[in-house]
Design a binder for these strands. Sequence first.
DNA 1: TCTAACTTGTGAACTAATTCACAAGCCACG
DNA 2: CGTGGCTTGTGAATTAGTTCACAAGTTAGA
Lengths: 210, 210
Amino acid sequence: MRRIAESTVRRLSIYLSFLEEIEERGVPTTSSDDLARLGGTTSAQVRKDLSFFGSFGKRGLGYSVPELSLRLREILGLGRQWKVAIVGAGKIGAALARYAGFAERGFMVIGVYDSDPSKIGSKSGGVIIKSMAELDRDVVAGKYDIAVLTVPAEAAQSIVDRLVKAGLKAILSFAPTQLSVPSDVTLRTVNMAMELEGLTFALTNRGNDK
Amino acid sequence: MRRIAESTVRRLSIYLSFLEEIEERGVPTTSSDDLARLGGTTSAQVRKDLSFFGSFGKRGLGYSVPELSLRLREILGLGRQWKVAIVGAGKIGAALARYAGFAERGFMVIGVYDSDPSKIGSKSGGVIIKSMAELDRDVVAGKYDIAVLTVPAEAAQSIVDRLVKAGLKAILSFAPTQLSVPSDVTLRTVNMAMELEGLTFALTNRGNDK
DNA sequence: TCTAACTTGTGAACTAATTCACAAGCCACG
DNA sequence: CGTGGCTTGTGAATTAGTTCACAAGTTAGA
């Protein structure tokens, strides 16, 4: 399989969410044109994205909604449950720990960890907060597939290093800082400041462009 | 000014955060090579990104840290305060309302709004929760530059439509759904499910690629 | 069975983004 | 004031991503 662009993977997620929506409504088939309209792209783009993984449609007819949605779930790795650790029991960590959207998609929040001794033992989102030392042990023991990082920027890189050392291969970070990981570890960063700056850039420079 | 790629704007944010860090430490100058190393890119990329906006460096010397950081703040529109409304007083909305990182960067959370009558009047992050009807009025009155949406997927598009109709030009959405806005409105979406699926895709397909 | 109306899958063309590579400028030092 | 060591800024080359355009397959209806 050749390397797949991140933009393609993001679009697959979008297509899947539509497919699940219309599958629920009992729609039997759909077309690249439908998916494009709903996902804000073009039908050629939809077909090209899918073509990296195989031929899932029928010419003249379109795509079977249940089949394509199953295939996309497989491609995206959603055919199983994923065990998630939340590292950092602050406001955002707590909000994520009890976010229902995770469970719906097969992401199970199994543990919440924090370095603040005064928090350890109390509950966040129905889960008891544990210490960072336990996090190391739990990761080494294979208890987690994914860690979600909601810690201050200063602490983030050293925690990432610990997680990587303990053998974790996927991290989603909300820390407002640039992190580095070895190439066999996948890292995604959501940086609110950066998103807002994208907006202010547009507000500030709108109209100056041609 | 020619159209600037979103990827360039994101990198400018990264460069700026480093510049602010080293400015605080009193470092007087830096180079495209430094910025590249810290930001996980190449020095040519850094110079190209900056070149869209002007020439800020000195050959043989590099960039003045205070000057470049000022310029980037100007480019990104951070030279002023931005008034932010949070729409949706759920867990995530509440976490964002009191997120200190916003204020540091000049984003002032002035109001929190929710459609649930039982929440209206109570406080979230030190701000009293107001009704959606008031949101319309406040936006029309020019009280806001930016809205941050933390509402369920089902409600998101209709709220976006209201905000757009009321004249708002910039929206940051955390709703897990695809939204559409007119071309004169800037929308950024943070979709946690999509980020996690990016990770599971990588975990599932790692090694299959060449 | 034939035709008309669709829709996919995919090379080819195009557009966008990144990287290369080097002339030009700057500083320090002798 | 000349030389050596750096570093920028930027066209050119390359690589990546998107869009075009059409052959080929499918269905429905006469």
